[in-house]
Design a protein around this nucleic acid. Structure first.
Length: 443
RNA sequence: CGGGGAGUAGCACAGCCUGGUAGUGCACUCGCUUUGGGAGCGAGGGGUCGGAGGUUCGAAUCCUCUCUCCCCGACCA
């Protein structure tokens, strides 16, 4: 993509409505436009990142046997009355009436819908286990939306729902999802910490939050530093349920809790002093085993191999996809702008033609651009007539992992200068090695 | 929902107290000079001052109502 053709409305100054850094950077880099409190339009740059995150999640969820579906945003009130949550959810739920005066709602979550799908179509233990997920917009009418997309009223969420015959099998499913989440966050370039959490109004007795450390986070957590040092989860682990359990236990037995259930005595017993960390954190995922809470109230039963009717055991697993965009920026930025982890960057490489109008630089920039495109990379080429300084500032702001400079230095030495955004390392390469170097990074 | 703050050009803000036909910087358009870290000079375009009502000869400015946005708290992925 050439910047001259790309809709990228960047700003030198942040709008005063934005207080936290990720919100400011998202507005300045032209990723989003606020529509009303907690509701945003996603512009091309932001939407690309959102889709990258989705795709990483999809890939990992499919790997552990998840099947993607898509449920509606607008749901009938009847199902919620049946589960008993129509009253419980309160003002956060956006209630709507259609032209026939039927009660509808904009879904804040999807347990009722999925349970309804399940009970309609699945009747036998032979149909299990089943893991369904979808990535869909939700709406919760928060009292006070804030922090940009990190706490919007409308937000994109991946939610999965698991169905198992009994608690033991459901726990294994829980463990698999737990490990899958660790893989997802690691691929997103984040060190996520799984903390034991209060399951809250959604119910259940086994629950973890996945948080990433950031000073602007809404949670306050206490945890064992070991959790930041474990190696990432290998795909092979999922092939053997003993390995799953072993790996899960390694993580789950470490002390890590939110402040509301923090216990100083236990903390001191289970951790060494140098490993104790207390930090603000942003919740980006949440996993629950909630057993038969919905299946009982909504009659989602199965017949086991003895012909008995039993309520199905369920779990649910959420990731705040749109929130993650803000959270990643909170986690990875500097005073110049965003520093995208390679897997979620909206483009892999930015090309800066520093002497637009100079025959050599124009020709070489175009050549590098074409070659990188042919190599299959996502490239943003700044072909505008802006001054060099403003191109540097703009490219640093939008945070692409690699920048290629073509200007008077290239003209003198016939080489191309690469800058790594995260480390600020710079080096000069010939065209061929530049293409190879960048291609290797992204394959 | 309780407490606080703010709505003036795309963005940041001044003007309001003390009423007199709306301004600055950035951005945008044109010209000249510049050109490796957000250039300089010159010339332009763009605002019924959030909305409604009132006071007044006259309202961005004073009064009333209202809408919206932001911050702190309680609540939440």
């Amino acid at each position: 993509m050439k910047i001259s053709q790309f809709f990228l409305p960047t700003l030198k100054e942040a709008p005063s409505e934005a207080q936290v850094i990720s919100h400011q950077l998202m507005l300045r880099s032209g990723m989003i436009k606020q529509s009303s409190a907690g509701i945003y339009s996603w512009l091309p740059l932001g939407f690309k990142v959102l889709k990258k995150i989705e795709e990483i999640i999809r890939c990992e969820q499919d790997y552990i046997g998840g099947q993607e579906i898509l449920m509606p945003t607008i749901q009938p009130a009847d199902l919620w009355i049946e589960s008993g949550r129509y009253e419980d959810y309160g003002q956060e739920m956006l209630r709507i009436k259609d032209r026939s005066n039927r009660d509808l709602l904009y879904g804040p979550t999807n347990e009722e819908l999925i349970t309804d799908i399940f009970r309609t179509h699945l009747k036998s233990y032979k149909d299990l286990p089943l893991l369904l997920y979808h990535i869909q917009w939700k709406f919760r009418d928060e009292l006070r939306p804030r922090y940009g997309v990190m706490r919007g009223r409308e937000f994109l969420m991946k939610d999965s729902y698991s169905f198992d015959l009994d608690m033991n099998q459901s726990r294994l499913t829980y463990q698999k999802n737990f490990l899958s989440y660790l893989r997802i966050f690691s691929k997103l370039g984040l060190k996520a910490v799984p903390v034991k959490a209060n399951p809250g109004p959604i119910g259940g007795d086994l629950s973890h939050e996945f948080v990433i450390l950031a000073p602007n986070g809404e949670s306050d957590i206490f945890f064992d530093k070991k959790l930041l040092e474990f190696e990432s989860i290998s795909k092979d682990i999922f092939l053997d349920k003993n390995l799953v359990e072993k790996e899960y236990n390694k993580w789950a037995k470490c002390y890590a809790v939110t402040d509301d259930i923090h216990n100083e005595k236990e903390y001191n017993k289970l951790t060494t002093p140098e490993n104790r960390v207390n930090s603000r954190a942003i919740e980006v995922g949440h996993v629950f085993y909630f057993g038969t809470k919905y299946s009982k109230s909504m009659g989602a039963n199965l017949i086991n191999n003895k012909g008995e009717q039993l309520p199905v055991h369920m779990g649910s697993y959420g990731i705040g996809v749109s929130r993650l965009v803000g959270a990643i920026i909170e986690y990875s930025h500097d005073d110049k702008g965003i520093i995208w982890p390679e897997n979620v960057a909206p483009f892999s490489v930015g090309i800066l033609n520093l002497k637009k109008g100079d025959e050599y630089c124009d020709k070489m920039s175009e050549l590098v651009y074409q070659n990188l495109l042919i190599a299959g990379l996502e490239v943003l080429y700044d072909d505008t007539s802006e001054r060099a300084g403003s191109k540097f500032a703009n490219m640093d702001l939008i945070g692409l992992p690699y920048q290629v400079f073509i200007g008077s230095k290239s003209k003198d030495n016939g080489l191309f200068e690469i800058k790594e955004r995260a480390t600020n390392k710079r080096y000069f390469l010939k065209l061929e090695s530049l293409i190879n170097h960048l291609t290797e990074k992204f394959n």
